[in-house]
Amino acid sequence: MNQTLNEKQKWYWKKNIKLIISLLVIWFLVGLGAGVLFAEPLSNIQFFNVSLAFWFAHQGSILVFILLILTYAVRMDKLDKQYKEMLKDGN
């Protein structure tokens, strides 16, 4: 394994970590945030026939979780592709 490959791997890992952190911030804000920590203020906001807090706690958070995992898979596919192209350019 030569030095440039290691550099590229480091770049890949950094990108990966950044993506994970931003997705987990959303995970926390939507799940434990909207569903638990801010449940009381959000209970006063009406969302169709239920309160917004209730909707997040029983429906919305799960929908967001699905989207987060999907986003991760799509973005990592893109990153893999960029990485492979970098390898080609380097050689």
Binding site: I20, L23, L24, W27, G31, L32, G35, V36, A39, A53, F54, A57, H58, S61, I62, F65, L68, I69, Y72
Partner: peptide, 19 residues
Amino acid sequence: YDGTIYLMGWTGGYVLLAL
């Protein structure tokens, strides 16, 4: 409302697992 512990707990853990 508090039943969300199971709804979010069992699906939200999946985000941790997948990422």
